[in-house]
């Protein structure tokens, strides 16, 4: 690792100020950032730890919306969101392993936007709102291709608001070595329609499968998806699976998610 300082502000205002310095970067759970620092893929001069900021922690539900503080760990979401949004809690409880879940955060996952990460699928399928220190960002504007988001330099995700669906499920086909999604599908049924978000598959990162959404909005059952297929064009191909295999998995996992949610 290159050398850097670490600061641990206890308020959001101090963190924003610290991130205004040259070459400063936010550090949340570090489960993604520390490995990339070891590989010298990043060279910050100051890391601004977000873990001591109480106003970025916690899980609360009100008026059909679940709000997660941006610094809430996967482990806390798994425990505390279960009563309000079980599919989201289940997703959190299957990220990585227990030690990763005790550090990794929802804000870190959504800021990083790994094309195989789980939270982006939940956020997109739920139509979540990203709350930062300076504004609110709608889902439609947030994801901008793999590892790219609408966040500006130094902008901090302080909270994420998830509208709670009537029914939902996330099915992840695990890449067994990394435990990330080879493909993951999040299906969420709301009173005004169904949203289907796919992670792990596209070279552009998480995306909505709109044909499936239309079919399911009329008839929320796995059979409504019969005959629907996804094109392999633009899907990832690697040693773990070809683009055609991923395209096939999307269809299968979407059916399983609908069956699990219904």
């Amino acid at each position: 690792m290159y050398s850097f300082e670490i600061v641990r502000p206890t308020s959001l205002a101090d963190a924003v100020a610290a991130l205004g310095q040259d070459e400063a970067q936010a550090l949340a759970g570090g489960q993604t950032l520390i490995p990339s620092l070891k590989q010298r893929l990043a060279q910050p001069s100051v890391l601004v730890s977000l873990t001591a900021i109480a106003e970025m922690q916690g899980v609360s539900a009100e008026g059909g919306v679940l709000t997660l503080g941006g610094g809430t760990t996967h482990g806390t979401v798994a425990r505390e969101a279960a009563a309000h949004y079980p599919a989201l809690a289940a997703l959190a409880s299957n990220i990585g392993d227990p030690a990763v879940r005790n550090r990794g955060t929802v804000g870190g996952s959504l800021a990083n936007n790994d094309p195989a990460a789980c939270y982006p699928a939940a956020a997109l399928a739920s139509g979540a709102t990203i709350v930062t220190n300076s504004r609110e960002i709608a889902m439609e504007d947030y994801f901008q291709g793999m590892f790219t988001t609408a966040l500006e330099e130094g902008e901090i995700i302080t909270a994420v608001r998830f509208p709670i669906p009537e029914k939902a499920a996330y099915i992840k086909f695990e890449q067994p070595a990394s435990r990330f999604a080879l493909v993951g599908v999040f299906v969420a049924k709301f009173a005004d329609g169904v949203r289907v978000a796919v992670t792990g598959a596209s070279e552009e990162g998480v995306f909505r499968w709109t044909e499936a959404e239309e079919a399911l909005s009329g008839n929320f059952s796995a059979t409504a998806l019969d005959g629907l297929t996804v094109s392999a064009d633009g899907l990832m191909s690697d040693i773990h699976g070809s683009s055609a295999y991923r395209a096939h998995l999307i269809g299968v996992l979407t059916k399983r998610a609908v069956a699990a949610a219904a």
Partner: peptide, 14 residues
């Protein structure tokens, strides 16, 4: 809480 010591800085454990 159990964590991986290779993926947390000493300064974070102050």
């Amino acid at each position: 809480l159990n964590v991986k010591a290779c993926t947390i800085f000493a300064a974070e454990c102050d």
